[in-house]
Design a protein around this nucleic acid. Structure first.
Lengths: 197, 197
DNA sequence: GTTTTTATACTGACTAGTCAGTTCGGAATT
DNA sequence: AATTCCGAACTGACTAGTCAGTATAAAAAC
């Protein structure tokens, strides 16, 4: 499994992911060509098709990979924490993630609300997995009375997810000169205020 | 000015705008072909190029048109109101707008944070105009002490703009069965809580 | 009030170019 | 020896933009 060959191949796939993420975040899926992706990854075009069935499949696996990481970080962040603190930890984890994988976040934001695309179903599913972690936390908070009882769990969870994404990416794109810690503070402030019973 | 010819032409342009908005909202700018737009508008492809210089220019004029409407509604909404009420009026105006032009809102959300696109500069400028109205209101509120003094005007304004957009579109795409009034209420609730000094 | 002219609006086949995906012999890596 | 990658040529479907020609309002001439 981790012999030289598989490692080498994993490395190529990783380089293709990185190249694809950067380009698609900038230009969108359709405007990004497979030739571009191969060139930026420093790889021949044939290699792309040796490693991935198609451009669409490459993108889908990319989404799976990226959101999988995010979901894992969400799970790790809330582990064992009481609801209110878990909520803060989620915001921090999301921003930490966006800071690290800004291009992927930008890509997510741009492709998340699309309809009528081949991979839309995949994206919807993955989004659900990430939000489920948030929803569990919110539900626990509402059940235990630490969060307002009138809070609608599903709405609040997806709103939280989307708002973190939009505020952080907005900052990165339109005010990149500012430290992202400020986003974190103001977002935490907002969430805390809203979470007050 | 309003003879048969100009009216007919205006009508054609309007139909092209509507067709383009719907398709681009669903598929994105690059994935939408000029043939598609023409077909949906019930017009020959040549007509698109008779009325607009290029696909990009059509899109830019569409953005100008759409955001111009939004900015005008913002201006009308805050007119003469004291800061706190003006803030609520802005939220309501934005949601009212999104309810009416949902495809345009979806399109905005998807294309807003792109970089390296020909029309990116235009979009950035237009976004600035809309946010300026929000910023004026927030600034007046901070100056008069009705809003927290530690509120950063620029950040708060763009956050408000983005959050309204993302929450509303998220709702439209992922929970369209719910009445949008509920979004308005919960958004207003959030803004009110955050605005508390 | 009818006919002729003109300007405007539209048409759709056509061109020139692009891009996803294929193919495959050979080179490099393990 | 087997796997992985290279690279370059090729195909076929698709797409932005063009342009010569048509239709039709309104204005001009009769």
């Amino acid at each position: 499994m981790t012999d030289g060959r598989t490692r080498r191949r994993e490395d190529t796939r990783q380089r293709l992911f990185v190249a694809a993420v950067d380009l698609i975040a900038e230009q969108g899926f359709s405007a990004t060509t497979v030739d571009d992706i191969a060139a930026r990854a420093g790889v021949a075009k044939g290699t792309v098709y040796y490693n991935f069935e198609s451009k669409t499949v490459l993108f889908e696996e990319l989404l799976r990979h990226g959101i999988g990481l995010l979901t894992a970080e969400f799970r790790a962040a809330v582990d064992g924490l009481p609801p209110l603190e878990a909520l803060g930890a989620l915001v921090r984890a999301q921003l930490e993630y966006i800071r690290r994988y800004r291009a992927f976040a930008q890509l997510l934001l741009s492709e998340m609300w699309r309809t009528n695309r081949e991979w839309q179903q995949t994206l919807r599913l993955l989004r659900g997995e990430a939000i489920a972690v948030i929803a569990e936390t919110v539900k626990a908070g509402v059940d235990s009375g630490e969060l307002p009882a009138d809070l609608d769990v599903r709405t609040a969870s997806s709103a939280l997810f989307g708002v973190g994404l939009v505020v952080a990416v907005d900052w990165l794109v339109f005010s990149p000169e500012r430290p992202i810690d400020e986003v974190q503070e103001s977002l935490l402030g907002i969430v805390r205020r809203v979470a007050r019973t």
